[in-house]
Simulated scan of single mutants.
Amino acid sequence: MKETDKQNQHQGNYTYIVKCSDETLYTGWTNNLKKRLEAHNSGKGAKYTKNRRPVELVYFEEYDTKQEAMKREYAIKQLSRQKKLALIRSHQSIF
């Protein structure tokens, strides 16, 4: 099996932030980041992002379990916009 095939089989759990077309931020979690971004941008993602397309991935974290990702999603959602922006800025070197 090729290395890229092995990487594609790995299903992590991700907490992510997208920037919407109206400059608002949306935080969510998924076990397939690429598919989730495609869903957001096709209007089949969250109700919040449906009318705020296109969205752009600006931040993500990977976790071993769904529970960890969901817990982190909740914690990020409790942050102010300014603290979310600071979190994004502190990790922009990953993009």
Score class of each variant (00 low, 15 high):
K50I: 08
Q82R: 11
M1I: 09
A46E: 12
D22Y: 06
L25S: 01
K6F: 13
I94W: 13
T24P: 01
K71P: 00
K34F: 09
D5K: 15
Y16V: 05
E3C: 09
Q11K: 15
N8Y: 10
I17W: 14
H91P: 01
K35Q: 09
Y26S: 07
K34G: 02
W29N: 13
N41E: 07
S80M: 01
P54C: 11
Q7G: 00
G12A: 15
K50R: 14
K44G: 07
N8D: 07
Y74F: 12
Q11L: 15
I76D: 04
G45V: 07
D64A: 12
A46C: 10
L85N: 03
V18L: 08
M70W: 08
K34L: 08
R81K: 06
G28K: 08
A75M: 10
K44V: 01
M1V: 11
C20F: 05
G43W: 06
T49K: 03
E61T: 09
G43L: 06
S90D: 12
L37P: 00
F60E: 03
E62P: 02
R89S: 10
H40G: 05
L57D: 07
L79I: 01
Y74L: 13
T49P: 01
K50D: 04
E3N: 12
E38Y: 09
K84H: 03
F60R: 11
K83Y: 06
K35D: 03
S21P: 00
T4R: 15
E56Q: 13
N13M: 11
E68A: 15
A69T: 05
Q78E: 03
A75F: 06
S93E: 05
P54G: 10
Q78I: 02
A39T: 01
Y14R: 13
R53N: 04
N41P: 05
E61F: 09
G12P: 02
Y74P: 00
E61H: 11
K35P: 00
W29V: 01
K19Y: 02
Y14Q: 06
R72S: 07
N13I: 04
K47W: 05
E73D: 05
Y26L: 11
L87I: 03
E3P: 00
R52K: 15
N31S: 14
I17A: 12
H10C: 13
L79C: 09
Y48G: 04
G43F: 10
K71F: 11
S80N: 04
N13G: 03
A39P: 00
T4P: 00
L87Y: 06
T27W: 06
L37Q: 12
K34C: 03
S80D: 05
N41T: 07
L57C: 11
I94F: 15
A75G: 07
V58M: 06
K2N: 12
L33N: 07
